[in-house]
Structures are given as C-alpha cells and as structure tokens.
Design a protein around this nucleic acid. Structure first.
Lengths: 197, 197
DNA sequence: GTCTATACCAGGATAGAC
DNA sequence: GTCTATCCTGGTATAGAC
C-alpha cells in the first residue's frame, strides 16, 4: 500500500523540482520567489509545502541534481582516451552549467547567500568539496598517465594544483557575471595556455 | 554661508560611513540592516536618511573608499624596485581587503547582490573593471622591465594574462568563503608557483 | 537636522476548508 | 493532497513633531 503513494510523492517532488529549475533558469535562485515556483508548477502553495519543507529544500534538491550531472561529466572525461588536459575541464564544467541553469553566473547568488544562511553554506561547501575531490582525482590520473609520475607524486602535485583549476572556474563565473564585455573564449584559451599541464 | 554647512554635512557623511564600515566589518554588506547602522552610528533613521538616499548609497560610498585603497597599493608596488611579480599582487590585495573589511569573503555578497540589483551591478562592474585596468598596467610594466618586452608585446601579453590573475583573487575569495578548511598560504604559494612570470 | 513612530512592502510559510 | 486566504516577520524608507 505505501508503494503507490511513495511513487506518487516522488513524481510530485520531481515535477515541482523541474518547475523550480525552469524558474531558476530564468531568474536565478534568490530572485525566484515561491510565488514564481508556484505559478510555474501550476500548483498551489499548500501543495508545494506538502512536498518540500522550505524554499531552501527545493534549492538543495535542484542543486544536487545539477552538481551530480557535472561530476558525471568529469568521470566520463577521465575514461576517455586520450584524456583532455585538466584545464579543459573548466570549459566542460561551464558548458554543462550553461545548459542546466542558463547562466553559470547565477551560482554567484548561491555563494552570496551562503555567507548568511548556514544551510546554504553547508550545501555550497559540500558541493565545492566534492568537485574539488573529483577534480583532484582527475589531475592525479592525468599526471600518472601523461607525465608518468608515481601515484604519490601525482597526488602531491594534484593537491597543490587543484585550487588553481577551481579558481579558474570560479573566476570564469565571477567575471562572466560582472564584466559586461566578458569574453568567454579569450578566458578559456588563456586558462588552457597558462595553467600547468 | 554654505561653507560651514557643507563642511558639516561632509563630516556627518563621513561619520555615518565610518559607522557603516564598522557594521559591515562585522556582518557583511547584505546582512547588515539599516537598524544596525543606525545603532552603530548612535544616530537615528531620520538623521541618516538626511545624508544618504538609501542603504545602497552607503554601500557605494564605503566600497569606493575600499577599492580606492587597493588601487593605491598596487600603484605603490609598481613604483617599488624591484617590483614584485604580478602573482604577488594577489597576496597584497587580499591582505588589504582583510584589513579593511575583516573577511574578503564578504565581497561575495556584493557580487551575489549584483545579479539582481542593477545599481550594485553597475558598482561592481566599475570596481572590477578599474582593478583589471590597473592590474593590466602593472603586468605591462613587469614584462617591459623584467622580461625586456616591447610595450606593444607587453600589452598584448598582459591583456591575455590579466584574467588569470583576477581569477586567482576571485578564487581566493570564493574558496575562503566556502571551504571551512581553506588554507590561505597553500593557495597563495600555489598561485605564485604556477602563474606566468 | 534630528528625533520617534510608523507606514509599507516583499516574501516565506501556515491554517483550515474541501 | 490540494486549495484559498491570510498571517507574520524582517526590513527599508518616510511623516511629522521638535
């Protein structure tokens, strides 16, 4: 008996999350009000709050989906032969974000919110830590395969370098958000030219 | 007759801005409410709104002061002999922000806010553009002096590289905000090790 | 110019009927 | 489970007396 109900609940959550994602796509996380999500979903406030405890819980659900997609992409690239250089991952990550949430710049809102909201901070921290971990593994693999380093040496180098690659992705996002004349291609080719190989 | 009054007004504005800076130092720009600024200044709402049109105008005033200090520092370094490598500027910039506003991470709030508030966007855009311009000039000088490049070649290189240095500063800020275990020294030495010279 | 008191708004969340 | 209507909070800005 709980079976049908559980499935129903799950699909309802899914439906709401999808509507929220569309709304976020348009206006960003913070600027999207519950009213927007309600309108987009075609449901009512009561219905939504029956499935999600708060707006933050919706953001959490959607974010988890999005970051999951990114991590999958990175793993897919690690399996490719030859594997793209670590600097190339920035391009892939940004492309994926672009596809999922319109403008990667919208992440800046989440980061900003994480300054004051402990729950959002926790989410952002976990997401970024996970990305760092996956990215580090990728760099390790790269140095082993491409530069013939020992696992230990590769790991040490990767730990040191990963912050730079993360900073590049973060810089891309900030600059695309702030500079009206941001040149995405120029940025990416500069990254690929100057970051370690 | 307007003379005394103008001076009075200016010093009042100054006083309010200083109080606001102290409040911002504690809680960040967004999380600081007008009530906080009012309490910190020891004045009243009416008094403050007699000198500033809005909270955003206060933020603008304070931000302008802070960025002005940073730009001054960069120019000071450009005059030094021998001049520090461009990557070192990241350290200086972050140190200065730390001194002025406590945690550089607070800037993330401004960037986040700039996504939805056109006025803040405009401010952030101008500030970051100005920083980019000063930073570019610094790199040009560096390449001319240190690497013996022609002005034209130095300029071309600087335009290409400046986004990386900016990204490093931005990455520093984001990562210090998001990672509970952020290692400031490790980050800075990685920057100085791998970014172009 | 400055104060107190308050209007006013946005937005998240809930109550209670169905 | 879902709807409508509404409450409530936090926060900016203003009105009007002094």
């Amino acid at each position: 008996m709980p079976k049908v109900t559980d499935e129903y609940r799950a699909s309802r959550r899914e439906e709401i999350a999808a509507a929220a994602m569309r709304a976020f796509h348009r206006k960003g996380f913070q600027a999207t009000s519950m009213a927007d999500i309600i309108a987009e979903s075609g449901l009512s406030a009561g219905a939504i709050y029956g499935h999600f405890k708060s707006k933050n819980e919706i953001i959490l659900e959607v974010s988890t989906k999005i970051i999951g997609a990114r991590l999958g992409e990175v793993e897919e690239l690690a399996a490719r032969e030859p594997m793209p250089a670590p600097a190339q991952l920035v391009r892939v990550l940004m492309g994926g974000m672009l596809h999922d949430i319109g403008r990667p710049a919208m992440l800046v809102q989440v980061w900003g919110e994480s300054m004051t909201d402990p729950l959002v901070h926790d989410l952002a921290n976990r997401v970024m830590s996970r990305l760092r971990s996956v990215y580090t593994d990728y760099i390790v693999l790269w140095h082993e395969r491409q530069n013939g380093l020992s696992p230990a040496a590769a790991r040490a180098l990767a730990d040191e370098q990963v912050v730079l690659f993360l900073a590049s992705a973060q810089g891309f996002i900030i600059q695309s958000a702030l500079f009206d004349d941001f040149d995405s291609d120029a940025f990416l080719s500069s990254i690929e030219k100057y970051l370690p190989r």
